[in-house]
Amino acid sequence: MIPNPAYAPEAWQTVTSHLAALGESPFWHPHEQLLYWVDISGKQILRANIDMGTVEAWDLPGEPGCMAPAASGGLVMALRHGVFRARTWGGPLQLLARLDYDASHMRANDGKCDALGRFWVGTIDETRSLNNAGLYCIDARDLAQTGAAQVRCMINPAELPATTANGLAWSPDNQTLYWADTPSHTVWAWDHDQNSNSLRARRVFASFKTQPEGWSSNGLDAGNGGYRGRPDGAAVDVQGNYWVALFEGRRVCQLAPDGSLLAEFAVPLQCPTMPCFGGEDLKTLYLTSARHHRSAAELAAFPLSGSVLSMRVEVAGLPVNFFQD
C-alpha cells in the first residue's frame, strides 16, 4: 500500500496555552467530557474543559508516568514510588502496589488499562544504560476480598532488554498487544490471551531508522541522515490502525495492522509524545508533547513545544479503558 502524503502541520489546533515540561498519558473521559494528561517532569496531572478553555492542575508528590480513569470514580496512577488510587480529583492517594525496581534511577512511564480493567505500567531506566525496563500488570478486581492488588511482570529484561517502555496499546479485538522500547526504535506485537493474561509469539511490528551520530536537537534537523524520530506513545483506532508519536520526528504515523505505513501527520513541534482519541465521536486526535531538556534553539523554533494539540481525523479511535477495583 502506498502511504498518503504527510498532512501539513497547519491541520493541528492548540488545545490550551498551558505548556507542560513533559506531557504524556492523555485520555478522553467520556463521562466528564474532559481531556486528562500528565506532566511527568512537572509532577502534575492536568485536565481541560475543551469547550470552556480551562485547565486544572493537580500537584503530586512524585512524577506521574501514566494514569487511567477508574470505573468507580477517580483515577489510578503510577508515580515513581508506586501505583496509587485517588477517589476524587485532588484527593488523598491510596497505595495499591509497589513495582520491583530501584526508584533512585527508575520510574513508571507509559501505561494504560486493558479491556478487563487491569492497569499496565511500563518503566524507564533514567540512566539509559542498564536495559532493565519492564512491563507490569496490576489487577485490583479482587481487592475487596484479597486486600491487595495482584502484580505480575509481563515483560522483563531477561526476555526483552529495554530502556524506555512506550507505545502500549491493544487491537480492537484485544488479541494483540503492542509495546515499544523508544531507544531501540522498535515496536513489538504479541498475541494476548486476556483470560489467562498471557503473551506469546513476539514479533517486530514496526521499526524506525536510528538517530545518526552527530544529529542535532536544535529543532532544524528533522530528516537529517534519514532520522525522523523514535516511537513514543500510541493509540489504536476502530479499524485496528496503530497511531504512534515519533519523538524528535515532528510527526505522528498511522500504521496498518500489518505494520505498513498508511499516513503520516506532520506536527508543528519537534517532540510529540502520545496521541489519544476523544470528543463525543472519538474522531478528535489529541497529542501531548515535550519541552523538558530541549535546546533553546529548538524551543525558539517550536514555541508550541509542551502544548496539547488536536486534529480531526476520519476514523474514530477506541475509547479509554477504565480501571476496575
Rank of each mutant, 00 (worst) to 15 (best):
C271Q: 15
C271F: 04
D258E: 12
E280T: 14
L287Y: 03
G279M: 05
F265G: 00
S260G: 13
L269F: 03
G279H: 04
P272Y: 03
A266N: 12
A256D: 11
A263R: 11
P272N: 10
K283Y: 05
D281I: 05
D281R: 10
L282K: 03
F277C: 02
V252W: 00
C253H: 07
S260H: 15
P257H: 13
T284K: 05
V252K: 00
V252H: 00
F265H: 03
L255H: 11
C253G: 00
A266D: 15
P268V: 04
F277H: 02
L261H: 09
G278H: 08
V267R: 00
D258N: 15
Q270C: 07
P257N: 13
Q254G: 06
E264N: 10
D258F: 11
C276E: 02
K283Q: 15
Q254T: 04
Q270M: 13
C276R: 02
P268W: 02
A256K: 14
Y286S: 07
Y286G: 04
K283H: 08
Y286D: 04
F265K: 00
A266L: 11
P257L: 12
E264M: 10
P268K: 03
A266S: 15
K283W: 09
P272I: 05
C276G: 07
T284D: 03
P275A: 04
L282C: 09
F277S: 00
P268L: 08
E264A: 10
E280D: 15
K283P: 04
E280S: 14
F277E: 01
T284A: 02
L282Y: 14
M274K: 15
L285I: 07
L285A: 05
P272V: 06
S260D: 10
L262W: 07
T284F: 01
E264C: 13
L282T: 05
T273C: 12
P257R: 12
Q270K: 01
L261W: 08
L269G: 02
G279N: 08
L261T: 09
T273E: 06
E280Q: 13
E280K: 14
A266M: 07
D258R: 12
G278C: 07
S260A: 14
L255T: 10
C271T: 14
T284C: 06
L287H: 05
G278T: 04
T273G: 08
A266G: 11
G259N: 13
M274L: 03
Q270N: 09
L261I: 10
Q254R: 15
P272H: 01
C271S: 14
V252R: 00
L287D: 07
Q270R: 02
P272M: 08
L261E: 08
A263H: 05
V252N: 00
L269T: 04
Y286I: 01
G259Q: 12
A263S: 14
D258H: 11
P257M: 12
P275T: 02
P257G: 12
